[in-house]
Nucleic acid binder design. Sequence first.
DNA 1: TCCACATGTCACGAAGCCGTAACACAAGCG
DNA 2: CGCTTGTGTTACGGCTTCGTGACATGTGGA
Lengths: 243, 243
Amino acid sequence: MKRGPRVLVVEDEPAIAELIAVNLKHDGFLPVVAEDGAAAQRELNEVLPDVILLDWMLPGESGLMLARRWRADSRTRNVPILMLTARGDEPDKIAGLDAGADDYLTKPFSPREMLARIRAILRRRAPEQARERCEIGDLVLDAGTHRVTFQGQALKVGPTEFKILHFLMAHPERVHSRTQLLDRVWGDHVFIEERTVDVHMRRLRLALGAAAAHLETVRGVGYRMTATPEVTADGGGLAQQTG
Amino acid sequence: MKRGPRVLVVEDEPAIAELIAVNLKHDGFLPVVAEDGAAAQRELNEVLPDVILLDWMLPGESGLMLARRWRADSRTRNVPILMLTARGDEPDKIAGLDAGADDYLTKPFSPREMLARIRAILRRRAPEQARERCEIGDLVLDAGTHRVTFQGQALKVGPTEFKILHFLMAHPERVHSRTQLLDRVWGDHVFIEERTVDVHMRRLRLALGAAAAHLETVRGVGYRMTATPEVTADGGGLAQQTG
DNA sequence: TCCACATGTCACGAAGCCGTAACACAAGCG
DNA sequence: CGCTTGTGTTACGGCTTCGTGACATGTGGA
């Protein structure tokens, strides 16, 4: 009942499309073929794939235009795109990257390389959205319903803050650097100031209210979600030096 | 002023070189740009970088030749090389890896990916600080969660003290001189008074509390972490000397 | 169009950390 | 004992890091 990653293949040449689809199926992917931009758009309206294999040369709208459009649409923005291009046109490649493609594949390519690239993208982009439900103490996050509750009470958490919280709660007790958070929450393809993470942490803490005690700052390292928040009262025999 | 890892950027295209340098600087690296193999060689004769970013296509000697030469030279042999290649030429990549490149990056690439690759290389090459979890008696250090516990009780340890403790616990029973500690904890090219180590040891002992018994001073040599601390009449803790 | 919300960045201040000097204490040696 | 060397301890100025409020921009909906 395990379903493989969905791959939308946008390719007008039937022979190539078939070749790709067969190889994808063979490796456990679920390919859906669209012969042009319009068909691809219809497919995207139905269900979002895990990755898009986009041919550069297409009848009607070009792959470049499509990539640009999908990157502009908030719904499809985060779907990684693997561009298929004819061999050797550097300017094309740069334009494609600008349009938001995650990687390129030069035709002709070996099926093995294609599969490797797709797996690399999936590994990079979606290491694990696996955990749908996370709990830490009385704090509960449900990715399916996109809800956060603390002691049964619903909390209002913004989109970015939700992603951060999701990641932190999926990997509790572990310290995550700002760089790691940027990579995992925002994605590797953006360049954001590390300091911005701090601001979102502040917003997350405000949203969490009392539950913010579970969110700890590790000075000089990063942030951490913990089930056992530090208490001010010192329980052990620590030799505490007073200045 | 904290100094980051040195990166020698061998790239003839000024625009690309500048882009790379800016991004490296932004992330705390110290980039040095060389426009061709000769300039790179001059730079290498001066000071060895922590990693070399080597463009494949260069005026004069190609990146492949340079990589091969540097790999043959005992002085530069161990400097990791990250190769920059034009997209899509598989044979080139293989040849590059044969020549001794540690990894390659396909142009065009995102700054974030470049930084991630560099960090990955440095991490891979980095010494044995790798051990995530260390135990000595009831004292446990976990680098992943950045936590130190003694008999189950969490201890509050500052950043530098944590690094010292991590190193000592990764190499227990062994005496480490102040110089060695400075090299391993602070970095090889930092000018710090050796006496400073003593002060951090003091802070570390305060943070460790009773567990400080495992941290021994070897007079005239350095410090050591031991599983079998010497038993003293006064209980082996922090005997407070009146001052 | 206006409005509400989200987001990324900056400036400023507070808190914590660091390296060093200076002094106190301990250990070795004659 | 007195001297020398090595280490423990404390205080402090300077610096880094973090939290916080404010602001400009972008985005989507009424």
